[in-house]
Every structure is written in C-alpha cells, then in structure tokens.
C-alpha cells in the first residue's frame, strides 16, 4: 500500500499502533465509560479534542519549554484544556456531563495524552503533532465505541438509548445480560478485541 508518509501519524494509531489494544494505555477510562454508547462517543470526542489541541500547543512551545519542568508544563496545558472541555459540556450537554461526571476530569491522567505529548509532540512540528493527536484520539475512540456497542446491546438491549432487541425476544425468555453492565466485562471485551486483532496481525504476536 502506498500511503502518503505524512499521514502515518494519523493512520498508524488506528490499528497497528493502537493506544488501547497494542500499547495498552487508557484502559481505566475504557472500563468506566463504556456501559452505554453515548458517553463513549462523547468521551472519544473529548479525548480527541484535548489530545489534538494539547499536541499542537506543546509542539508550538517545544523549543521554549525548559527541560527541567517540561512534564509540569505538559500537565498544565492538558489540565487547562480538560477544564475547558468540562465547562463546555456542563453548559451545552448537561445530561452527558452528569453521566461522565469525574471521568472528564480524569482525562488529565489518561496516559495516552501524556504519552503522546512526551513521545511525539516534544520532537515534532505542529501539523504532524496535530495528526498524531487526532489519530490516537480516534484509535482510542474506536475501541471505546466497539466495547460500548457490545456492552449496551447485550447488557441493556438498547443502542444510543433506543430499544433494538424486539419485545418478542423477551416474551420468549430472552434476558439482558446484567453482567455486561459491570466493569469486568469491559476488560473481557477489550481482551476479545485484542485476540481478534492479533490473529489478523501476525507481526504483533509475541
């Protein structure tokens, strides 16, 4: 395949270098916000926005940041962006903000973000850093949305809150699997995704 080399930071994290299933980062929030699709989608958008903006800002500042306090500077930038996202959600999508509650604040500690700032943005120009942020945010989001899809479908019989398992299934004895709602099933779902992904990408197998 002949992919434009400049787009690699955008494309790699989607599969070959996925932050969740290959680098195994950001697992905490993957468990927490994936019981329903809607918060998973909002979390994806929020993390992507924060990561892309933080990458650009850090990349612009990278030649001025004193080495001794670079982690602190990164944290301040990330924390400021997360607070802004949180305030915007509270003002415009109050219900979603209530459902996500503390997890928006916890974006600050999402290892994907600090990892990308330190590993990529500190040594690259703003445009590739921006693509890297979008790519990693989406790579994280894809997994979140896949997990949330199965957990909401099997656990509540709904998707985005709409009933999709028809009523006659329940009348014939079908039951929602309440265990899918509980956090451990998110880990098992992530593990299943890793299993399928590895079996398609032999070079990732150890």
């Amino acid at each position: 395949m002949n992919i434009n080399k400049n787009l690699l930071p955008l494309i790699n994290p989607l599969s070959k270098d996925n932050p969740v299933i290959v680098q195994v980062l950001g697992i905490c929030s993957a468990l927490a916000v994936t019981a329903k699709l809607e918060p998973a989608v909002v979390m994806t958008i929020s993390v992507t926005a924060v990561l892309a903006l933080a990458n650009v800002i850090i990349s612009l500042l990278r030649n001025t940041i004193p080495t001794s306090i670079r982690i602190i500077v990164q944290l301040v930038v990330v924390a400021a962006l997360v607070v802004i996202v949180d305030q915007v959600l509270k003002a415009y999508t109050y219900d979603v903000s209530k459902a996500l509650s503390v997890f928006i604040g916890l974006i600050i500690t999402n290892c994907i973000i600090m990892g990308r700032l330190e590993a990529f943005a500190m040594s690259n120009r703003p445009w590739p850093a921006f693509l890297d942020g979008i790519g990693n945010g989406l790579g994280y989001g894809i997994i979140l949305i896949i997990v949330a899809f199965f957990r909401e479908l099997l656990g509540s019989g709904t998707l985005f809150g709409f009933q999709v398992v028809p009523q006659w299934c329940y009348e014939h004895g079908y039951q929602n699997n309440g265990m899918m709602i509980l956090p451990p099933m998110a880990l098992i779902t992530v593990a299943c995704i890793i299993w399928v992904h590895r079996s398609h990408n032999k070079d990732l197998q150890e």
Binding site: I65, P66, S68, I69, V73, V76
Partner: peptide, 18 residues
C-alpha cells in the same frame, strides 16, 4: 533555557496565561 531565572519566568507566564 536551562537557567533558573528562565524556568521561573516561563512558569509564571504560563500559569498567568492559563
């Protein structure tokens, strides 16, 4: 960029802007 003065000024400006 490694001097103490630079580091202090840098962090002060950053915090005020944020």
């Amino acid at each position: 960029r490694q001097s103490n003065t630079y580091t202090i000024i840098y962090s002060t400006v950053l915090v005020i802007v944020v």
